[in-house]
Design a protein around this nucleic acid. Sequence first.
RNA 1: GCCCCCAUCGUCUAGUGGCCUAGGACACCACCCUUUCAAGGUGGCGGCACGGGUUCGAAUCCCGUUGGGGGUGCCA
Length: 468
Amino acid sequence: MSGPRFRFAPSPTGFFHVGGARTALWNWALAHNQGGTFVLRIEDTDEERNRPEWTQGIIDALAWIGIGADDPRFEGPYYQSHYADAHVAAAKQLFEQGNAYYCDMTAAEVEARNKVEGNQGYQGWSRNLGLGPGPGRVLRFKVPAGSTTVHDLVRGEVVFDNALIEDFVLLRSSGSPMFLLANVVDDLQMRISHVVRAEEHLPNAPKQQMIWQALGHEPPVWAHVPVLVNEARKKLSKRRDKVALEQYRDEGYLPDAMVNYLMTLGWTPKGDSEIAPWSEMERDFRLEDVNHSPAFFDLKKLAAFNGDHIRMLSTEAFFEACKPWLFGPSAPFPRSGFDEGMFLAMAPHIQPRCVTLADAAGVVDFLFVADPVVDEAAWAKTFGAAEAATVLREATAAYEVLPVWNADALKATLETIGEAHGLKLGKAQAPVRVAVTGRTVGPPLFEALEVLGRDETLRRMRAAEATL
RNA sequence: GCCCCCAUCGUCUAGUGGCCUAGGACACCACCCUUUCAAGGUGGCGGCACGGGUUCGAAUCCCGUUGGGGGUGCCA
């Protein structure tokens, strides 16, 4: 496949970060609307922090938001650790060309000398020592004089004074390649044309650009997109903040809602609404339109997006999406009590009452349990009212002889009973609701009673009467 | 400290010199609808950080100040 080549290069050091998800999504949209390719590369070279199990987590999380190998524009995953030889070969080339040199100072020695001399960073002390490779020696890049201009699609031209960039390490004393080098060599080898990543990498861009050039290539198109921040406006951190995409998935957020929300953090869909289908966002996304400031990851707005997307679901799709919570370990009713027809009949009333998919089971649980779970406070309050017991008794009697069991008839009957006692429907329905559902709040009552059926409804009403 | 980035309602944003008395969305408040709770509808609250320029005209361009963020590893 021809066209521009984008890449997403996460390191498997934890759960999949929502910020990473947004960066991946933006790259994904670009690869599609520019007729290019999205390369996934797992950067598993951090010997300390890498854990293989996180890699599958990344792949699964990406698949959840629609990024995966079943799309022809997806390429990978590649594993950076498999290319160590190429990284070392590139390092050797840089050394032989005179773009890099060996240094025998340890980190502690560098720090100590800086302390004495009042400096910051490595001062190029071993530059002209002519050292060759050897144990305990790192290979450092020889940063040339002058300045480096990074052409960035969202930042514009950013100029860095090379004098302020230290001779950074390419190869550890162990001989293993570091991020700055490995990242460039892989990008080169994978013919990456566009590097779109978070702004925290902007200071790396001039260093990497120098490597690209020293290796004899034109640098890629850069784009450093704003980071996502928490309420304190600090970069989202795995320790402090709820950033794991997997967690949102497990809590009942719809992938479409998550994708839609993530896309709007720093960018707005065309048209009048920020609620937009992926197909449109994918088509319209452009780096030139990206906002330059950090964006706050707002749970409340995410919840609002999720509610909107849940309401947009067809009845069937909604049922399908709810299944993990209907039949999983958190379900408030036994699977044997569940009735698909009843759920489907109530679905249109459940959807507007859900912020997450996990909420659905709790809205209609009373239909599927043997006996309603009674909220004592609601019970006491409702039957503490003067006419409540009478209304319940009269409703039971009237419902026993109702010629047709449907919502309209159930409603009209209770309305009549309420009027006889000077009660509006809002008041009159309360005793019946509490008797049948155990709660004062829930989906529309008469529709629920219709679905529940005459026998079970009357059984619950009589049971409630008996306790009064 | 040093380097770099950024700056429109509380938040996400629209806005690319006149269409801005600055528009939308979330949140919040009120009202309407209503069978409880939601959803929905209507309205309200609320912002161009500050100071200088440039211009007939600036949220938009320039400079400075202030504020925020990122980086400053033999992490990625």
